[in-house]
Design a binder for these strands. Structure first.
Lengths: 225, 225
DNA sequence: AAATTCTTGTCAATCAATTGACACAACCCG
DNA sequence: CGGGTTGTGTCAATTGATTGACAAGAATTT
């Protein structure tokens, strides 16, 4: 009933919690306190408790959190307790690399189809999945109950394809094209703008070098406070 | 002289400004006001002015911003006015896809070398760049004045390789491995955690569906139920 | 079984980011 | 060349996110 909008800042941290909890689980550790977890993850105990409490009380006073239970709860929150069916649009290098990355499947993200506008690539097969022509995409999405489309195509055709995807009722788009997609609000877009990320790195490198120059800082494993 | 730490939130928006300014430039538009730009970019004029002013006054009252000038200034801020030399570590599907993505080169990020621990892949060539064994990496970095290492290897070996990279004086790591890298502070790390990104998408899909269910909202063009 | 320790959930305080408001500089039109 | 208009740079207000503090519940020890 209560509509308390949950911030993307919190959501963005959940996968990281999940990762560390998974590691603890693998090590056979059954319980963990927010303090211990924050030490491992280099964050504050307060933030962990605050974040988790956004979704309800998963811990127990005097005990901490049960690793397995918390892990499962976060999985559920993230919607990883069910299967997601994906298609890849764009069978170029990146599209192929994503199909070949099997870890997504382990998390329940199943690649069902691959589409490309180049007829030359079609009828090829990537990891057992046939590459189909774009014309078949709309029907395929509807017939196979596809959740998510991965957009791995050049920017100039991305907007057009996104519109088409929106029309056949896709729920989310994982966008690797270097444009912002103007889609209706009920469709979720998650952007992976690789060049933006690389530019951020470039900035941070440049600015850290400037800093050490102006302050006469030494680099290396050497230490100047 | 003045050390006013610039927030990553601002840095993160600069590449997007650059992208839109580039488009305006291509359209032959010479001047733009913060208001116009914010309309196009779906943000607030205030934020644009605030962001730009972090780095100094690029605009002129009564006129706005000169597109070409602002574009160049942001490029400089991001450190894109000089060449960056990169190596790829890991010649798997992802590593290959990144090498084949020529847009990075257009921005001044030049791939100089590729390294892999699998001797079978070595001596192969990707886009004219020879794949070398890991043993040669340290020397190669020093001899070719490499800035940035792209880490496209499985998580279990990533930390170890990152340490090695740190030792040979790399300045930044573009990390595609699904781990946090414990490197010295003077080395910049930019993480691209693809599965985290996909999980966020999964969350947003799940939560938007819940919302429309509980509030009886209709979807998109359409009508659900 | 009581006392002590531990650690959550939560509220308050601080810190950071975004938005709004406006003085004033530069432009443009007549 | 002067008056009206535009639009920046900046400061203040607001909103949001993170951190700190602590009461109270549960576990563990004696």
């Amino acid at each position: 009933m209560e509509e308390k909008e949950i911030s993307q800042a919190v959501i963005g941290r959940l996968p990281r919690y999940l990762r560390y909890l998974g590691e603890l689980k693998d090590e056979g550790i059954e319980r963990v306190s927010s303090q211990e977890l924050s030490d491992i993850m280099q964050t504050t105990a307060s933030q962990i408790r605050q974040d988790l409490n956004t979704f309800g009380g998963f811990g127990q006073q005097g005990y901490g959190y049960n690793v397995g239970y918390l892990y499962d709860e976060i999985r559920k929150i993230l919607g990883l307790d069910r299967e997601h069916r994906l298609i890849i649009v764009g069978a170029g290098h990146l599209g192929q690399a994503l199909v070949n990355y099997t870890n997504f499947e382990r998390r329940g993200f199943i690649f069902r189809g691959i589409f490309d506008c180049d007829p030359g690539i079609c009828e090829k097969t990537i990891r057992g999945i046939e590459v189909r022509p774009m014309e078949q995409m709309a029907d395929f999405i509807r017939e196979n109950d596809i959740d998510i489309a991965v957009l791995a195509i050049p920017k100039n055709s991305a907007v057009e394809v996104a519109k088409k995807l929106a029309d056949c009722g896709i729920k989310g788009i994982w966008n690797f094209a270097h444009v912002d997609l103007p889609v209706p609000e009920h469709i979720q877009v998650e952007n992976v703008h690789l060049s933006d990320s690389l530019m951020k790195l470039s900035y941070n490198i440049s600015s850290s070098q400037e800093e050490s120059r102006t302050s006469g800082k030494v680099d290396g494993n050497g230490q100047n406070r």
